[in-house]
């Protein structure tokens, strides 16, 4: 049952479901896209999230209850039947078990569920994998939907496009770390994330992304239009790389030449929901074709 809630006098928060699912996320995307197209006056921000969405508005221009009525109508009208998403498939190189996140996670063992193992060993174990290599294989085998952006500028919450029984789940730290290195690749709940900048964080740390997802100087090609790279609806394929490739990418980033490997894609959520495996395979084929 959808909950419509006031967030003070300037926000409406709409929780479509308490649990995460691809279907709920697609629905949030469809509703917020339709709302954007309506260009309702008084709306300042439309923030689609994982299983919910949030609107910031100016109540001097639109009464919150009128806005809620509009949102309820939209919820009735919007279906996933013909909804299409145009986005990018992106190759995202990750150095798993890198020295920098390792150093960070070892510093905060006292805040972790299992102080005697590393984050990746712990999550491999709790998800029933034989080894951490199996966990890495599972993460890199199928792509992820960028289901929400936020926390800090550009952080992508990514939800794997696999059947429910194949989803990986991880608890967050017992108490959040006060330090997470820039570009750390983390996992919490059912989400993979990349931390855009150094800061606090509570997700399990598995590795480091070689390329930035936030670049305030906007030097790199992928950041010319925006300081933040990820967009909701993008499909990220996390690829495990060696230290050699990592260092090579870092050089390309430093001399301003790095560009993400991307392909434009259009897909129907309906097709993804009907056969996530087939969709994942087709994205990976297209990305590396």
């Amino acid at each position: 049952m959808t909950r419509y809630e006031y967030g003070g006098d300037e926000f409406i928060f709409v929780e479509l479901a308490e649990a995460m699912s691809l279907e709920t996320n697609f629905k949030a995307m469809a509703i917020t896209k339709a709302l954007r197209e309506k260009k309702v006056s008084g709306i300042l921000d439309i923030c689609p999230s994982n299983a919910s969405y949030m609107i910031r508005f100016n109540p001097d221009l639109i009464h919150p209850d009128d806005l809620i009525s509009k949102l309820k109508e939209l919820e009735q009208d919007v279906t996933l039947e013909n909804f299409e998403i145009t986005a990018r498939a992106v190759d995202v190189p990750i150095l798993f078990e890198d020295p920098w996140t390792h150093e960070a996670l070892m510093r905060f063992r006292d805040r972790h569920q299992d102080p005697t193992s590393t984050d990746i060993e712990y999550v491999a174990h709790t998800n029933g994998f034989q080894s951490k290599e199996d966990l890495i294989k599972s993460i890199t085998d199928a792509p992820y939907l960028v289901s929400m952006i936020g926390f800090v500028p550009g952080l992508p919450w990514c939800y794997q496009m696999v059947p429910n029984e194949k989803q990986i789940e991880a608890p967050k730290y017992v108490r959040p770390r006060t330090y997470t290195p820039e570009r750390a690749f983390g996992f919490g709940g059912s989400f993979a994330v990349i931390y855009p900048v150094q800061g606090a964080g509570g997700y399990q740390l598995f590795g480091t992304a070689a390329a930035p997802i936030f670049e305030k100087e906007q030097r790199l090609h992928d950041f010319k239009e925006s300081m933040t790279f990820p967009r909701q609806g993008d499909v990220f394929r996390y690829r495990s790389i060696s230290m050699e490739e990592y260092e090579d990418i870092r050089k390309q980033v430093e001399n301003g030449e790095f560009r993400y490997l991307t392909k434009d894609i259009t897909f129907k959520p309906k097709d993804v929901l009907e056969n996530p495996n087939a969709f994942s395979e087709s994205v990976i084929r297209r990305l590396y074709a």
Partner: peptide, 14 residues
């Protein structure tokens, strides 16, 4: 599903 194990956790939201 997806929220994390602490009772104060929810599926990440705005």
């Amino acid at each position: 599903f997806g929220a994390g194990s602490n009772p104060s956790n929810v599926v990440d939201l705005g």
